[in-house]
Amino acid sequence: MPFSAQPPASGEPYVLTASLDNARHLSSLLRAVHFRDHATCFATANGLRVTVEDAKCIQANAFIQAEIFQEFAVQEEAVTFRINLSVLLDCLTIFGTSSLPGTSTALRMCYRGYGSPLMLFLEEGGVVTVCKINTEEPAELLDFDFCSTNVVNKIILQSEGLREAFSELDMTSEVLQITTSPDKPYFRLSTFGNAGSAHLDYPRDSDLMEAFHCSQTQTNRYKISLLKPSTKALALSCKVSIRTDAQGFLSLQYMIRNEDGQICFVEYYCCPDEDITEAKLHRRDS
């Protein structure tokens, strides 16, 4: 039972208010992290972060900076709540997802604080929709402790370079193996499926390669089922930064430009697949 069932005392001030001329700027980013039903929202003066996790192995974050909103006010240092993301998305797109020129859904979002529902006011063409979405106790989030000082290898690619590769990933392979190296093959994606192995190499001097900083050779495997949801973000993005730290944790940072040319980010963190030990790896490859 969602604990926000008790109505808040009326007249209580909002701890979070935000308004947006085009609700699609928010809904399209949220759709890019929508691979589980629940999300944790975290608002500070800088903006809104929406986090979705699965299997304690993958975490997706959508960042919507305060500047994207026409109004964004937070009365506390940080406001956190958990919400059903599927419901939130259905509400945000109540007037549809398609973009007809000249029509956009205006949004106002309010939250009175712990235990209260999230209120949405949407308007398009004189029709108004009011939504009251119950919020839940925020769950503790994974801390991937992924900081830039621990990053070993970093590659920035134009997204189109990765889109095709990801859309055609051999899903019969349990893992995606990513090799980054200062020498050949520089950047390699490999799958090991029923029909054999596939390797995809990106040369270092490719037009798609915007930056290439690799200090040592790293080969890590990630569960394909965990990475697959990130293709939603990839599809929207213009650039992607692929980083790995010393323990093999992967960060995929997608730069997404909305219709108004504003830049937002969606980030996926993924644990390396630990079932496969180094020894096994060598045996299978040799």
Partner: peptide
């Protein structure tokens, strides 16, 4: 239980 929505 989760949500109430009214379109006017």
């Amino acid at each position: 239980d989760l949500v109430s929505v009214t379109t006017h």
